[in-house]
Amino acid sequence: MSVLVFVENWDGKFKKATFEMVSYASIVAEMSNSNVVALSIGNVENAELEKLGKFGATKVVSVTNDKLNFLDNQAYTSVIAQVAEKENAEVVILSNNNTGKALAPRLSVRLKAGIGSGVNHLPLSITPFVVQKRAYSGNAFANLLIKTPVKILTLAQNSFEIKENGSSTLIENFNADLGEGVVKTVVKDVQKQTGKILLTDADVVVSGGRGMKSPDNWAPLVEFAELLGAATACSRPVSDEGWRPHEEHTGQTGKIIAPNLYFAIGISGATQHLAGVSSSKYIVAVNTDKDAPIFSAAQYGIVGDASKVLPKLVEAVKEMKAK
């Protein structure tokens, strides 16, 4: 028996979210008396693969194949399923990011395994297997019983602390069986966002809403974010108006994020917005309306105009950094 965790790499490197996932898997393995096997697809150097051992992976299965240079959901599903069967996996864990969301459901059918998606806690119990997941867009949690022998979980980002508990790991190369014509997705071009902290990876996010009044007022917000090493985000009206790019829209229909700290600047906090950010550990709100719903979701608040408050925040961060 094993807990299999699929670890994605970005240009040969893992991210903090990867180590969170392996740490999570190692506790699930402990709860179910099994071992963690990590599966890496793509070219990752051994030194990087070995890092997974520190977080509890006793074995790393590495699959490299030119057919897998780009994500093809069918081909990747086939590889993960082959390794899951070979390792006798009882639980398969993926990230709840776009890749995980693309693969987990296909894998579910292939392995006849029920899915708990977007889980942010350890299983409530192993027998029976019950996990807690987001429901009603963050307005509730569902306790989900997975009835199948094999279980699939997708883990929400930033929902589990990294824990170093292992040591060395065994690296095994695996030749996955990929028949002719399996890969049907042709990737024509890739546009990567470079030099910016990704919204979904960021520990701190600074987000602006209509209270910013004009796209020309964003400079202090961006400066504030840069000083904090934070990603920038925005509310839906702001992206709909074209003040900021769609990629920055956080909320129910945009990105769902869970940073440690979320600044909502000039955002009133409609239910749809909160659906995307309510899992943040701390929410700070700046708004002119003291009755704005965002203050019910926030732990810290300032009633005031963004244009007056932001420069003061920028100054305070500069002072903090100078110390």
């Binding site: 579910s108 006849k112 395994a113 029920g114 899915i115 708990g116 019950v130 807690q132 429901a135 963050g138 307005n139 509730a140 949690f141 569902a142 306790n143 989900l144 019983l145 997975i146 009835k147 199948t148 309510s278 929410i283 700070v284 709100a285 700046v286 203050f295 019910s296 979701a297 926030a298 732990q299 810290y300 608040g301 300032i302 009633v303 005031g304 105009d305 007056k308 408050v309 003061k312 925040l313 100054e315 305070a316 961060v317 002072e319 903090m320």
Partner: peptide, 29 residues
């Protein structure tokens, strides 16, 4: 494959602590 055993509501957050706009910098501390 799965069945919802029950729902829970998120824990209510602690009340918001307000910082005066004039002294916004205190928020950072």
């Amino acid at each position: 494959y799965t069945e919802v055993m029950g729902y829970e509501m998120p824990k209510p957050r602690a009340a918001c602590k307000f910082v005066d706009a004039e002294n916004a910098g205190q928020l950072i501390a």
